[in-house]
Design a protein around this nucleic acid. Structure first.
Length: 442
DNA sequence: TTTAGGG
DNA sequence: CCCTAAA
């Protein structure tokens, strides 16, 4: 049937395009010539301006819809890539979708199509046909001022096949027909309106261009219309490039866990940024976010578990010996100011664990009488740290008894010197016993 | 707001 | 590491 033939052509077209893109072979001269020819034809039909605005109506519309459509485009392809070994199948299917949609639009006739375009062009309201326009826009890159060669590739490869499809009087005919209707209205649009349309995706374009190392600059003043056309073209291409990059990454290291959250992160609206601590010079901080891709799933129930390094433990013990047990905020402020991921509660928990570990270690040493060879299972604590922890536990027993705020007040006096732990008051002794009791239970 | 304690 | 009560 006609439809089948069309789909076959679509598949051929898309595969050809992607192959050329991935191998970075520039389009041949003949193809470029065909593009120019096609453009000339369009101009004669007073369509080019509409084509531009059509793309803008699709890409400068409501951000949510736009992102939904485009991300859907990318996500669908990605899912297909994940499922199948054929890298290009997803994109081919996507193009099938576009064509089917266009066919539907043509079946509906010029009435609704024209209505949607009019709405998009005259008023800034975005009709429900926006998704349709988006698919058209995704297909029709604006070839007026292609800023990079990719643009040329796509046009030069897509358009000839578009011609073939046009011979079927199904796809392009319907689109162009709708645009012809709105031509005069488009041209009478003040340029300010067009500039305003171009402004919004520019911001997003800036965000994404920072991600995808694109070298194009923000559109400057003057010749804004041309630049804006390039922008929407580039925006699409930035996304496609990102998709390609993801494909390459996926094919290189068959793991896709890292690439998927990248897409989702980019999709996210510009939320309120996390309070960026200036002391956050640890490169592992960004690594942390990469390591927890499922964070956004549910209010990031649990932070990524960060192992306590011996240096950190030593710092903690140092801070405790200096500021006293219980003054976790002070310890955090003065001793852990460089590591923003350690909250005072973390310090306290770690200290608790240290106490337990040291106590267990003490008990095992008492049992085994100095047999210190079993360092793997029972004693993850270094010996010096364990000694200091025990010493501090004698001086400042952590589980303070409820009634006695005495230890905290005495801490201020004896905080600076650790070696005074021999004169342990009976309160501390009892509390130490309490620690031991707890630890023996555990 | 910080700490302690339990989970 | 998280949550909650208490100070």
């Amino acid at each position: 049937m006609d439809q089948d033939e069309k789909l076959r052509k679509c598949s051929n077209m898309k595969c050809q395009r992607v192959q050329v893109d991935e191998s970075s072979v520039p389009a041949s001269k003949d193809e470029l010539m065909e593009v120019d020819h096609f453009l000339a034809e369009n101009r004669n039909e007073h369509v080019s301006a509409d084509g531009d605005l059509d793309i803008h109506a699709a890409f400068n519309g409501k951000d949510d819809l736009e992102m939904e459509v485009l991300d859907g485009f990318l996500d669908d392809v990605e899912i297909d890539d994940l499922e199948g070994t054929d890298v290009f199948s997803g994109a081919c299917e996507e193009y099938f979708f576009d064509f089917e949609f266009d066919s539907k639009a043509e079946v509906l006739g010029p009435g609704p199509c024209e209505g949607s375009h009019l709405q998009n062009s005259t008023s800034e309201s975005h009709s429900s046909e926006l998704s349709g326009s988006s698919s058209i826009g995704a297909f029709r890159n604006n070839p007026h001022q292609p800023s990079n060669e990719d643009c040329l590739y796509n046009i030069s490869l897509d358009i000839p096949h578009l011609h073939q499809l046009d011979n079927d009087h199904r796809l392009a005919g319907g689109i162009l027909y709708c645009k012809k209707e709105t031509g005069s209205i488009e041209k009478s649009q003040p340029t300010a309106l067009k500039e305003k349309r171009c402004r919004k995706p520019t911001r997003r374009y800036i965000e994404e261009s920072s991600d995808s190392r694109s070298k194009e600059k923000e559109p400057t003043a003057g010749t804004k219309r041309k630049h804006s056309n390039v922008t929407s073209c580039d925006e699409l291409h930035i996304r496609i490039k990102a998709l390609r990059k993801i494909r390459v990454e996926k094919s290189s290291n068959g793991i896709s866990d890292v690439t998927i959250p990248k897409l989702k992160v980019r999709r996210g609206r510009p939320k309120k940024e996390k309070p960026h601590h200036d002391e956050e010079q640890f490169s592992s901080e960004s690594e942390d976010e990469c390591l927890t891709p499922k964070r956004s799933k549910k209010k990031d129930r649990r932070k990524h578990q960060r192992m306590w390094t011996p240096a950190e433990v030593f710092k903690l013990v140092d801070g405790i010996s200096e500021y006293g047990v219980g003054r976790w905020t002070d310890i955090k402020r003065f001793s852990f100011s460089s590591s923003s991921y350690r909250t005072p509660i973390d310090l306290r928990d770690k200290w608790r664990n240290l106490l337990r570990a040291s106590s267990i270690q003490t008990n095992t040493i008492d049992q085994k009488e100095g047999d210190e060879n079993d360092d793997h299972a029972i004693r993850p604590l270094p010996f010096n740290v364990a000694c200091r922890v025990r010493e501090l536990a004698k001086l400042h027993p952590y589980p303070r008894q409820r009634g006695s705020k005495n230890s905290r007040s005495t801490k201020h006096g004896t905080a600076t010197s650790v070696s005074q732990s021999k004169d342990s008051p009976p309160i501390c002794q009892s509390k130490r016993n309490n620690v031991r009791r707890k630890c023996t239970y555990n």
